[in-house]
Amino acid sequence: MSPQRRRFLTDTARMAAGCVLAGSGLAWLARDARALPAEALRPPGALPEKAFLAACIRCGLCVRDCPYDTLSLAELGEDGAATGTPFFTARDVPCEMCDDIPCVAACPTGALDKGLTDIDDARMGTAVLVDQENCLNFLGLRCDVCYRVCPVIDEAITLEVSHNDRSGHHAIFAPTVHADHCTGCGVCEKSCVLPEAAIKVLPTRLARGTPAEHYRKGWEEMEEKGAPLVDGVIDLPDRLPGPGTDNLAAPGGFEPAFKLPEGASQ
């Protein structure tokens, strides 16, 4: 091998090795950058985090156009989100859900998806009543603040009434989030009167489970169809204990403690 050739090959190998090293370091940082802290919420219309990091050029135009100074750009080593990307912390300044969604309009790359035209369709996160033990409503009081301030009141948060077992004769008005309608704006978290909010907006991945795909809700399907799901099925009587069925008063059987309403099929 000629010295020139040898030198060329060594240089190239060196350079390649250096680049692999530098690239790996960068890739490690990139992996790290994907770990968005739970408190950091992305602006409305933000693509899923992985796609967002490929799309957001960190120009800050969404921050500039936010009329409520909700958004800020993550600073290196301080905010946790990938450096320079926009986020907000609901407890500090929540999203006020502008009708014209100026942050989305400002985004030059589509990291905030222009497909979002109705702010009620935004899904920045999902509110969760994380602490029932300290929530005033769950204690039987009528705080109701999170319910009252919710921009999607009576849809995203409802008050579900139940009996207050502690007092024995009052009601509990439980603030209940309905994720299908919650935009994750964070106004409820911001407004919670407790020193540390009992209701918090979490990234949806933390806030929600997913239904098992194989699990079919027969009652929903039946309601949709308006008839039993299998045609011609013979609806046999349920084998309830009680007079007229074949499993009572048999040796070892027992008498039912209740009586079925008249006319109920047996």
Binding site: A16, A30, A33, I57
Partner: peptide, 22 residues
């Protein structure tokens, strides 16, 4: 130039705008 190549390769492999991290 090599580094530029490495940056673009890292961007492609990690699916992020890699150089903007540093």
């Amino acid at each position: 130039l090599w580094l530029l190549g490495a940056v673009l390769a890292t961007s492609a492999l990690t699916g992020t705008i890699a150089w903007e991290l540093v």
